[in-house]
Design a protein around this nucleic acid. Structure first.
Lengths: 157, 157
DNA sequence: TTTGTTTGTATGCATCACTAACAATCGACT
DNA sequence: AGTCGATTGTTAGTGATGCATACAAACAAA
């Protein structure tokens, strides 16, 4: 993990600090990308023993919250493609965390459920998420966190 | 693009609004993921005629700012893997936007430069970025934007 | 019943991150 | 000078993801 403080130099001899990103520093989207990347990386570290991605945990969580949910429903809530949703669901099913069943009210739809293994995995995952969130929120006050979430919501909703 | 307002219902009959994400709504990381996704999607829309990704534009931009930059240097600034950096650089080189040259000061390093085509692409890209940033920042006041960037920086630095 | 829509599915293409291994080069120390 | 550890670029492979396209089954509306 000694990826933070490197030497660089040569092409940017006068920069004392680390990474001079020049004009890119003024781009909000770039900061968002870096922040997301940092969080994603910490997430996968925290979840390395569980072998679960953000997306997979989110899907498990949503299925737990909304038993019998259909894939399209999942997709809209997570802003995913139908095809992408398929891929995620397939993987989780292959690992025995969820099962598909025909919907009773609409023959086209699948109704997704957690298996016991899935429920167990989600419980562990939520613990890991708590740690991860702790790490993330540690740099903000409660008020700042609320403001950050509110701003992010303005972007994605 | 009629992906926003769908029906849903059935499994969540009492929800008036759209996407009820339940407990996930309290997870800062989840909002960050959604926000990043939304921005990324708008970015690719804005750049569809240019066929450039966020990452590719960022790399072009950094090479323009720091001529002779080495790949590792690029990698640290963009928080990328060396291998990932290779892939990005390869693609940009294949499209004739950048060229590799041996560094004069360090035989291990490459020194990257923009070609004329690369410079031209970057100019157009910066215009598109301006539009994209406009879209993103339109929901914030200048003060809010500054605060958002500051908070994001606390996460990624 | 016919027609258009929704849902799930399969396929293919492109991007991206991370790991592991390897060769060339550099730097530092002996 | 020579050896050794670290750095840099490179290649290859795995996994996850996003998007487009196409198709079939089921549904809904005309």
């Amino acid at each position: 993990m000694t990826r933070q403080k490197e030497v660089l130099a040569i092409t940017t001899p006068h920069v004392e600090g680390d990474e001079d990103i020049g004009g890119l520093g003024d781009i909000v989207g770039f900061h968002l990308r870096l922040a997301f990347g940092a969080v994603y990386r910490h997430f996968t570290e925290t979840f390395s023993h569980l072998n679960l991605t953000q997306k997979q945990v989110s899907v498990l969580w949503l299925i737990d919250d909304h038993d019998d949910i259909a894939q399209t429903d999942l997709a809209t809530r997570m802003r995913m493609d139908r095809a992408t949703t398929m891929a995620v669901v397939n993987r989780l099913q292959a690992r025995g965390f969820i099962v598909r069943g025909k919907s009773l009210t609409d023959g086209r739809k699948q109704s997704l459920h957690l298996t016991n293994a899935g429920r167990k995995a989600l419980v562990v995952a939520k613990d890991a998420i708590a740690l991860h969130e702790e790490w993330l929120k540690s740099r903000f006050t409660a008020a700042e966190t609320a403001r950050l979430v509110e701003m992010l919501t303005r972007i994605h909703e």
